[in-house]
Design a protein around this nucleic acid. Structure first.
Lengths: 332, 332
DNA sequence: AGCGTTGCTTACAACGTTGTAGAAACCAGG
DNA sequence: CCTGGTTTCTACAACGTTGTAAGCAACGCT
């Protein structure tokens, strides 16, 4: 049913290696031989066995992308860009869901592939420097916050600056009681810490006192968490006139909670998010947010990985910052 | 750097095959031998080379999931469930984006794997029966509409019934000028045709005349298309008092357009969708929709595939229908 | 003691491919 | 028609793994 080089070779009356040469476009093959082989290939519907090729070559042509959750729109959108960018390098992308657990992430990084993949683009939540050091073997590019002094390449946005800018925008609207939603105490919360720092910096610059009661934690960054946090803020007696949510899904949840409380956005409370996901362009009201250049992030990550697999094999870890901008819409 | 069975064998003072037996949990290995081998494995950080194993076994442990677009929430949510279900069978999932083009889909089905994958779960938009017949080799499960008389297993929801139910619900609310958004004339629009049929059936049952002007086409099923279609309906002079959108993203776009037009949902216009994506639970207003059991769909698909790869290798094509229910919320 | 049985281990070949090295065919120039 | 240099093709080995079959102890039974 499934044919091998050998079958094609017999049919074309040449050696196995000659067929291999035709398949791989090797140049020294006479035109008529090539034609005969190609005919045989077509007739038998021959397709190379990638496992065998990989075994022989030590390369698989597959890279993995490991993200915490696929149905968080930010990661889905990012995944699309990574797939596109990787395709330009002739790679297939194996998309992996880590669930954000350090165990899962370690497994993704060390386990997935074991010779099944050439490299890994990992968006870590829980991974520590120790975990990374233990991996070593696999060429890897990390997305998001720096795992301090990890040995891997890195693509990130300037979270602190971005958070500062969007908070400053809220200040510029005349808001003074600006809440933040999404803080996290856990070690996984690297992004949360940086965005909180940016938020605090903007307040400080504006001479607004940092008020602990205005900072709402969120165990995860889903819509439900945003809604819950917002409800908590509203019932706790601190009446914010603006909220900076650490990502867009939190913000969409917050919008929902404000709506249920009968408050108008942005008149009563301005809302800002982070990520610029598709939903935010159609929500009611549309969402003002930080727009990281996801396409660029994906492209940079793929390119770093390409470097690691090629000429820059032994280069020192590099760290690239992708640009971001503010996408100001109705909510703030 | 990377070690092989042979290295472990030498270190443990046993044969290569014995190490292989330990790795694969073969039973006839003396406890002390096993211990020695395991120690050697640990010391060398040995990990099997999957390419070699696959070559030998003819199985890769990877299945592919090919969907049109990853950042359509429905597919992202589905992907998550598939990954979860596949993990229970010990499979890794290679997620592929076809973009909905028939060329791409054919490539996904025939090309991706070529011995890289054991099977394929494909959500086809454009694939014809001919395309499928040409593939043959790869065990495959299709999601969504039947490609007529294709030879592959199939998991679907009863689109006609579901569409009829949700439309009947709109009728039950007392609406009479019920629009539909999302019709498609192209061959890709199999889902669109079925949902339109369900819509028409519900109208007929209620004795409401089918009005062509109330049926708005949508080239794709994105939020922007839904918004555009809704705007078109509103400006064309046919004032609907309800809209059934053929998926949730269309519906979210429609909500947005209605909001911009100053119309209230559901008071002025009731809105219903299809898919039950996460967004719809937090939109303003929350979205009434058809909720296909995505978790079940994923599980059935994986199980069918498992069957094809195992005992039911030669079974005739099966067709399973996953249940759905109405998720009635604020918008209708 | 001889026999079969059971438990443990091993050598060998094979999976389908490609790199290496070299053989065969071809070509031009004398 | 030989020489030397290409071009074109081929045999062989290897990538790392596992299935097969067979070897070797040690055991219990007659």
């Amino acid at each position: 049913m499934r044919h091998r080089l050998k079958d094609v070779a017999e049919r074309a009356g040449v050696s196995v290696k000659t067929v291999s040469n035709v398949v791989n476009g090797y140049q020294h093959v006479r035109a008529d031989t090539r034609a005969r082989v190609e005919e045989a290939i077509a007739e038998l519907h021959y397709r190379p066995n990638l496992s065998a090729r990989n075994l022989r070559k030590g390369r698989t042509g597959v890279i993995a992308l490991a993200v915490p959750e696929l149905d968080i729109p930010y990661f889905a959108e990012l995944a699309r860009h990574v797939v596109t960018a990787a395709a330009e390098h002739g790679w297939t992308v194996l998309i992996d869901q880590t669930g954000g657990g350090s165990e899962q992430e370690r497994k993704a990084a060390s386990g997935i592939g074991d010779h099944m993949i050439d490299g890994l683009i990992l968006s870590p939540l829980a991974l520590t420097a120790d975990d990374l050091a233990a991996l070593d073997g696999l060429p890897m590019v990390l997305l998001g916050e720096r795992v301090d002094h990890g040995p891997a390449d890195h693509v990130m946005v300037d979270n602190v600056a971005a958070a500062r800018e969007i908070t400053a925008h809220l200040v510029g609207l005349g808001r003074r009681r600006i809440a933040a939603i999404g803080s996290q105490r856990t070690p996984e919360g690297a992004s949360a810490r940086l965005r909180l720092a940016g938020y605090a910096a903007a307040l400080a610059e504006a001479g607004i006192a940092y008020d602990d009661r205005l900072v709402a934690p969120a165990p995860a960054w889903h819509r439900a968490d945003g809604a819950a946090a917002m409800r908590h803020l509203l019932t706790s007696g601190v009446r914010p006139d603006a909220v900076f949510c650490f990502n867009d899904t939190l913000a969409l949840g917050a919008l929902r909670a404000l709506h249920e409380a009968g408050l108008r956005v942005p008149e009563d409370v301005a809302v800002a998010g982070f990520d610029d996901i598709e939903d935010g362009r159609f929500s009611i009201p549309t969402l003002s947010t930080v727009a990281p250049d996801k396409e660029r992030i994906a492209r940079l990550a793929v390119e770093l990985l390409a470097g690691r697999l090629g000429p820059d094999r032994e280069a020192p870890p590099r760290e690239l910052v992708a640009p971001h901008r503010l996408a100001l819409r109705e909510s703030a």
